[in-house]
Design a protein around this nucleic acid. Structure first.
Length: 203
DNA sequence: TGAAGGATTTGT
DNA sequence: CAAATCCTTCAC
């Protein structure tokens, strides 16, 4: 059975252990429909996995109002607010009741998207050079207008946010390292990024 | 009911 | 290296 139809990745594709899904998201495209109907696209170039038994995972202790989507079925969106300022986008994996999700840490925006975002005038000034506009989990949510309203929704056209498979020609070496910014679970090598890609948050 | 702190980013 | 800034979580 096909897990991608009309070039969209379906929920079943996320129904695997998070540390298996996270590296395979590299090269996939995150597609966002803007409020004006524009489609913004960015290739996923950096991910991190958070899963069951992992002290850094928001679902490590128990279900709460905030982390509920992490315990939901694979293919859900989980967005949370960090430091009162930025949002972080996660894609829920594995199975229901198993807290797990992939943090999308950086995107390489395509040319058309950069052009469109540049016309929103204020963007260019506040975000620095274009190829770094989505180089970080907080930055990519800000530039693609992703916030907690999406948390708990299905990754889908209806939500205005979905994932498409890599181009047939996609091929790039991945680097596996330790996760960033956490105080527990630092030994796990659950961060992956595309080697030498200029949009990676911290090489 | 209150206090501590965070899967970040930016500027000093 | 510290501020920004607000919500969530956990302790009392």
């Amino acid at each position: 059975m096909s897990l991608s139809v009309g070039s969209r990745v379906l929920p079943g594709w996320f129904a695997r252990p998070v540390e298996q899904v996270a590296p395979e998201l590299l090269g996939c495209w995150l597609v966002r429909r803007s409020s004006s109907g524009q489609l913004w696209r960015g290739m996923i170039v950096e991910t991190e996995a958070y899963g069951p038994g992992d002290p850094a995972c928001h679902g490590y202790r128990k279900v709460t109002n905030r982390n509920r989507p992490m315990f939901g079925p694979p293919g859900l969106i989980y967005v949370y607010l960090i430091y009162g300022i930025y949002h972080c986008l996660n894609l829920v994996t594995d199975a229901e009741r198993i807290p797990s999700a992939v943090l999308i840490r950086a995107l390489e925006l395509d040319a058309a998207t950069l052009t469109d975002l540049a016309q929103k005038s204020t963007e260019g000034k506040t975000l620095g050079s274009p190829h770094r506009w989505a180089a970080g989990p907080g930055k990519l949510c800000r530039v693609l207008d992703i916030n907690r309203d999406l948390s708990g929704a299905w990754l889908s056209p209806a939500a205005g946010l979905w994932v498409e498979p890599p181009l047939p020609t996609f091929q790039a070496p991945a680097v596996q390292t330790k996760r960033i910014g956490i105080s527990q679970g630092q030994e796990l090598l659950w961060r992956w990024y595309i080697k030498d890609n200029p949009a990676v948050s911290t090489p």
